[in-house]
Simulated scan of single mutants.
Amino acid sequence: MQNETTKIALLVAVSTLVFLLMPVFLILYIRSYNRHKKNHFLEKQNMQQRFESEILQTRIEVQDQTMQSIATELHDNVGQLLSLTTLTLNSVNLNDAEKAKKKIENSLSLVNKSIKELRELAKLLHGEQLVENGIGHAIDQEISWLNKAGTYELKTKNQLIDSTLISPDKDLIILRLLQEIINNVIKHAQATHIQIDSYLENDALHLKVIENGIGFDPDEINAKKAGMGLNSIYKRIEMINGKLALNSAPGKGTSITIEIPYP
């Protein structure tokens, strides 16, 4: 009988302890949950701020790159056309009507070419227009700049040109990625041939750049955590949940393939 009483007392004590501890555990759980929820919200807010900051930086870089291209075009193309126009007009001999007429016609032709070039450049002065017509048109413009240099044998396949899908923030980052890759090729690769392919497949945008330059050791570059702007490229691709495949070796050129969920 005493054992029975002891067991009942022990059971009551344990039950009471459990009932007393349950609210404590519940309060601790709620506090922990709220803390995690708050941390998650702050982390999400910080990620959004970092993304917006990156978008702003990217927009500035894209505009700077565009302005550099415009400055180069004004100097190397429009400037030369206008200088040639001036030389032609200065050489006009009014005493020789036939030759004078021919030179004036040539001058008018040069002026018309200059006006056409200036109109094309004017379209690029509005930064937002770079991607408002879609990433396909923005890529086509970059290829056009590269082609005008006349330094490389270009092979391009831009299947995005007719795409109606747009994602302004992603488009801006994708354009900047292409600009960075092209700049790396110009500065470091010593290439003569460049292939640029862009297309949509399986709800993803694919951008591929292949060149026949001097190549490099990717492991060595990654170990140094610097050089060739690769860190910036990796960071931006990660920000938009993309993937990058880089293949290169000394003397064997470089291939870069980017895959980004799109739109």
Rank of each mutant, 00 (worst) to 15 (best):
Leu10Asn: 14
Glu120Val: 12
Glu238Lys: 06
Leu87Arg: 13
Asp219Met: 10
Ser107Asn: 04
Phe216His: 01
Leu82Arg: 02
Leu130Lys: 04
Leu17Gly: 12
Asn222Phe: 11
Ile30Cys: 09
Leu56Ala: 12
Ser91Gln: 15
Leu160Tyr: 01
Ala138Ile: 05
Ala191Trp: 01
Ile194Leu: 06
Asn202Ile: 00
Ser15Cys: 07
Tyr152Pro: 02
Ile186Ala: 05
Leu94Pro: 05
Phe19Cys: 11
Thr164Val: 09
Arg119Pro: 03
Asn112Phe: 10
Asp96Cys: 02
Ser69Val: 11
Ile8Phe: 11
Glu73Phe: 13
Ser144Asn: 11
Leu81Cys: 03
Ala13Trp: 10
Ser232Met: 12
Phe216Asn: 00
Ile260Arg: 06
Leu244Cys: 08
Ser114Pro: 12
Glu43Met: 09
Asn231Leu: 12
Ile233Lys: 02
Ala13Thr: 12
Leu17Phe: 07
Leu28Gly: 08
Ile143Trp: 04
Glu117Phe: 03
Glu43Ser: 13
Ala9Glu: 15
Lys37His: 10
Gly79Pro: 00
Glu153Asp: 14
Glu4Asp: 10
Leu108Met: 13
Ser69Glu: 13
Ile258Gly: 02
Pro261Thr: 03
Lys102Trp: 06
Val62His: 07
Glu120Phe: 13
Ser198Ala: 15
Glu220Ala: 14
Pro263Phe: 07
Ala189Pro: 00
Leu20His: 00
Leu230Lys: 02
Gln65Lys: 09
Glu43Phe: 07
Asn112Pro: 01
Asn222Gly: 08
Gln49Ile: 11
Leu121Val: 05
Asp217Tyr: 03
Leu160Lys: 03
Leu177Asn: 03
His193Tyr: 09
Gln141Trp: 05
Phe19Thr: 08
Glu132Lys: 14
Asn184Thr: 08
Glu132Phe: 09
Val209Trp: 00
Asp64Gln: 15
Asp217Lys: 06
Thr86Asp: 11
Arg50Val: 08
Asn241Ser: 14
Ser255Asn: 10
Leu42Met: 12
Arg50Pro: 00
Asn95Arg: 10
Ser167Val: 08
Glu4Cys: 06
Leu42Asn: 11
Asn39Cys: 10
Ser163Tyr: 03
Lys123Thr: 13
Asn77Glu: 08
Ala149Arg: 15
Ile70Trp: 04
Arg59Gln: 15
Glu128Gly: 02
Ile214Glu: 06
Lys37Thr: 08
Ala71Asn: 14
Val14Cys: 03
Ile139Glu: 00
Ile194His: 01
Lys113Met: 13
Asn106Arg: 15
Lys187Tyr: 09
Leu175Gly: 00
Leu87Thr: 11
His137Glu: 09
His193Val: 10
Ser32Asp: 13
Leu121Ile: 07
Gln195His: 12
Gly215Asn: 01
Lys103Ser: 13
Ile221Met: 10
Ala245Thr: 15
Leu177Tyr: 02
Leu94Tyr: 12
Asn222Val: 14
Gly127Thr: 14
Ile210Pro: 03
Met239Ile: 08
Tyr29Gln: 10
Asn46Thr: 15
